[in-house]
Amino acid sequence: MKKLEESMRVLITIIIALMIGVLAITLTSKEPGIAIKYFFTGPFSSAYFFGNMLAASIPLMLTGLATSIAFSASAFNLGLEGQVYFGALCGTYVAYELNAVPPIIAIIVVLAVSFAAGGGIAAISGYLKSKWNVDELISSLLVSYTLIYIVDFFLEGPFKDPAAGLAASPYFNKKFVLPKILLPSDLHIGIFIVLAIIILFSIIMKRNKFGYEVRITGKNFRFAKYAGIPVKKVVIMAMFFSGGIAGLAGMIDILGIHGRMIRGYSAGYGWNGIAVALIARNNPLLVIPAAIFFAFLQSGANVSALFSDVTPEVARIIQAAVFYLVTAEGLLFFLKKKRMEKGQT
């Protein structure tokens, strides 16, 4: 019953969001019929578009997972944008330096580096929160802004490929690029890596000691502390894993699609990841369809822009609308929480 109610609400959210999209297209397009048709059917019209949509969902799955891990510990990680970007830069640099190493080893090292880089910077915010109660929401965001500038600095200067027309790093060894699945689209085997990570974390959150600690700490910090759970460590570790997964999101995208680091290539991965986690109700497994839905919105707008006069930016309106609606849809969720609180007094 509860499950049904929840899925109905998600469905309603999606329908309203799509209606808003239709409205936005209708208002700005001279040929709304065609635009709308391509918006809805475009991503499914060919293997190319379909594969690209799934490829676009890969980083969102990871940023969605990253958000939900931090949130389970009741911490807001708003620095995903910077963690994705910085993780990718560090990984790309190592990939570039490891030119002669066998691909499998190189890829593992590169992923580990980007994980550590993203995780490390998120852990700073976790540390500041644990140590001095500095709001992790704002500190992670400020660190993220700072890092985006620093990464841009490297891409425009020390780590710029002089031959490239735009601010981008040199290409790393082509052998490191993850194999494609659905040519000619961008879809790559990174999707399997990502699915494995999500399933792993889903199990960890349910069955592992660390998962238990995170959940209890997130639900009632004072209780967790009183019970003897090392809460400070838990918060720092949750932020570390959150940032680490964000770093992976950036690097897997680079390994699968770009083959080098490009300025601003990941803009929006972090914010949309938050929306994905909200739609997924913080449930790691539901992050998968939620990310695909978000990618669908963007792909639909992109395809539609190719064949009609709408701008791909219409997707951003729809995505923002989803974000809003998901908060209102949270109504049920929060009412329930309130009910609990009231029931106790």
């Binding site: 914010w271 909200l278 923002a320 809003y324 998901v326």
Partner: peptide, 18 residues
Amino acid sequence: LRANVFVVGLATNLFANG
């Protein structure tokens, strides 16, 4: 609607940006 005020704030930012 008792939505989480942080999340609505994020929605506001994302919406304004979009």
